[in-house]
């Protein structure tokens, strides 16, 4: 039965199958426990899409409109930007074409779905956060203490493994909604205090 269904599916969409094999191989690559320093940015770039699965943008972000692109802005200098541009040529986020924008001005932040904040923006962080605080923008950083300061998700490395931390209070205050599953797999910073 299983074989029949498989054969049927195989015959139905051969192209789909080939596409799957490519993704499969790619994912095997990123599933390795340990990774080289060069690869960590690839992983981060891939994680961006994965994290997006657990985030719900509000209506104003036009997530249902497939024709509108998914905008990932990168502020500051980071090798991640290049990796993002490479990966999201084909890869879609939430079925939307992805546009990677490198920005330097704060006013460019609006309309972004994800804002990647480079470590170089450390001094400007409070300004950036004051803008993103009320916007439906998922802020992601890759510097220590950035989460503590108000960035929603921050990558860090532990035991040679890429991990991320989440500022729960900041997520709660943001117009974004984050799935519990994501919290489950992350390190929680500033947990919500229930009084």
């Amino acid at each position: 039965m299983r074989i029949n269904i498989l054969t049927y599916k195989y015959l139905k969409s051969k192209r789909d199958f080939i596409k799957r094999i490519i993704i499969f191989l790619f994912l095997i690559l990123i599933s390795f426990k340990s990774f080289s320093q060069a690869n960590v940015y690839v992983l981060k770039a891939v994680y961006l899409e994965k994290i997006s699965r657990f985030i719900k943008w509000p209506e104003e972000s036009l997530m249902n409109d497939i024709d509108k692109p998914f905008i990932v802005s990168v502020i500051g200098k980071t090798p991640l930007a290049k990796n993002l541009e490479q990966i999201y040529v084909i890869q879609k986020i939430n079925n939307k074409e992805v546009v990677i924008k490198r920005i330097s001005n704060l006013y460019e932040i609006e309309n972004s779905h994800i804002l990647v904040i480079a470590e170089s923006e450390k001094k400007n962080l409070q300004n950036i956060l004051s803008i993103t605080k009320d916007l439906p923008v998922l802020t992601i950083s890759e510097a220590p203490d950035f989460a503590k300061k108000g960035v929603l998700i921050n990558f860090y490395e532990e035991d040679n493994k890429l991990r991320f931390e989440i500022n729960e209070t900041a997520v709660l205050q943001s117009p974004l909604q984050m799935s519990f599953y994501l919290l489950n797999s992350a390190k929680i910073i500033n947990p919500i205090k229930i009084n």
Binding site: I30, Y47, R53, Y181, N184, S185, A186
Partner: peptide
């Protein structure tokens, strides 16, 4: 369901 995130992030 608890394993969704670990699966996602390997």
């Amino acid at each position: 369901e608890y394993t969704i995130a670990p699966l996602t992030f390997g």
